[in-house]
């Protein structure tokens, strides 16, 4: 079969996360691979509109997969207008996800900025399901303000098994905010990574990852123990269209999750 041929998917559920972010739970037809791992992505789209790379915010749950999408471009603005029961097309999964095998048996530090929480959600789900396979697990989560926090109704369940630290750039609602205000790097001192035994997964805007990774190294972590997920323009997902090339890497195939050591200091990047 043509590697770019999309599979049909039906929107089973749409949940409004924030003003411009929704989580779409979709059922896909048999042509779609069942082998998914946290951190991978699909090319999601609709004929006439095009396709965009979107990471999984949930893997198989009740026969469905989840994508959490912010409406910002042509493709995502189209998806934003769809209703439950509507069809869309997707193909995948593509790319290398989070190295769960490396994280197992160690402490795991998850750092998410904004929509970056979406590709970490399958990691959190896996940790919750096999909690004994990991050491201390902490999640540092930042957002522009309280209104931009994702998956807020799940935090309580997460907190029972992992440590969750929240921060917002500014608090805007006037409601009591019992968490930090400021950049996410300000949370790094709240966790004390056991520098030899900790593995960190970091995802968010590239400029945020730059400073988080540097902050982690200042606190003794090794570049080889830090993993980041990159975002680039993609048209194919299969290392052929060339749009996602980053100093010789195909982000779609060699990433989107990379060991920090592999992508730090590359031209045209911020890490």
């Amino acid at each position: 079969m043509h590697p770019l041929k999309p599979a049909k998917a039906v929107l089973k559920n749409i949940r409004q996360e924030t003003a411009d972010v929704k989580t779409y739970t979709v059922q896909v037809d048999g042509a779609f691979s069942r082998e998914l791992s946290p951190g991978q992505f699909n090319m999601v789209g609709y004929p006439g509109v095009g396709e965009a790379p979107i990471s999984f915010s949930s893997l198989w749950e009740d026969g469905c997969i989840g994508h959490t999408v912010r409406s910002v471009g042509a493709v995502t603005a189209f998806i934003d207008k769809l209703a439950e029961g509507d069809e869309l097309l997707l193909r995948g999964p593509y790319g290398k996800g989070w190295p769960m095998d490396i994280a197992k048996g160690r402490d795991l530090l998850l750092v998410a900025g904004g929509l970056g929480l979406a590709p970490l959600r399958p990691v959190i789900r896996e940790v919750l399901q096999s909690r004994d396979s990991f050491g201390t697990v902490s999640l540092l989560c930042g957002a522009r303000n309280e209104k931009n926090l994702l998956f807020t109704d799940e935090y309580e369940a997460w907190r029972k098994k992992i440590s969750l630290f929240l921060t917002v750039d500014e608090a805007v609602t006037g409601e009591p905010w019992g968490h930090s205000v400021g950049l996410i790097t300000g949370l790094l001192d709240r966790v004390k990574p056991d520098t030899a035994g900790t593995c960190a997964f970091v995802v968010g805007p590239e400029i945020m990852m730059r400073f988080v990774c540097r902050g982690l190294m200042l606190r003794g972590m090794q570049p080889a123990d830090i993993f980041v997920s990159l975002e680039r323009r993609m048209k194919c997902g299969v290392a052929q269209c060339g749009h996602c090339q980053h100093a010789g890497f195909f982000v779609c195939r060699d990433g989107p999750v990379f060991p920090y050591a592999q992508v730090t200091g590359l031209m045209d990047g911020m890490l």
Binding site: L4, G48, C241, G242
Partner: peptide, 26 residues
């Protein structure tokens, strides 16, 4: 140079889409 774009072209009657690729440039 192998880079290309993938383009969806909607027909005038809006009943079909031609999805094609064409050479693109960095």
């Amino acid at each position: 140079c192998f880079c290309h774009d993938v383009v969806d072209e909607l027909s005038m009657d809006m009943k079909t889409v031609r999805r094609y690729r064409e050479w693109d440039a960095c």
